[in-house]
Amino acid sequence: MAKVSMTVNGKAVSGEVEGRTLLSTFLREGLGLTGTHIGCDTSQCGACTVHVDGKQVKSCAMFAAEADGAEVRTIEGMANADGSLSVIQQAFQDHHGLQCGFCTPGMVMAAASLLADNPKPTEAEVRHHLEGNMCRCTGYHNIVKAVLAASGQDAGQIAAE
């Protein structure tokens, strides 16, 4: 067991982990941040997407010890300071960008990462960026719409109803 310390959603945390403890396990079981989900074991579904030092990563494909000293952000840290939904979260609700909600945290984290780099993406860029995040419910239609809307673009103009 080794001690790791990191900042998660702005709060300093630490805990004892084994070498094999994944970052996702540390977040879910160590810190009780169960918004980060595990949907596969081959690092493809993206439900476990979080930000480490500002970059989106799959927390099931990174050891907790590798995040020692890092700034980690999870879905629990995405709302506005007053607890209201952030622009991206609100766009997902407004445009019905989620159904069962399981892929949603990863989608929001991936979308946030895209919009940080590319504030006005095209539909194709949104779809391409979400390549590593699987959703089985929405057919992606409303997720793409939500991300475009969150970027301030008129999703109604782009998206067929």
Partner: peptide
């Protein structure tokens, strides 16, 4: 009507079976 359940899912507060310990 916008879905009320979305708020918990969008903030990581959903309670799925694997979240139960």
């Amino acid at each position: 009507t916008k879905r009320r359940e979305d708020v918990r899912f969008l903030t990581g507060k959903g309670r799925y079976t694997d979240d139960i310990n």
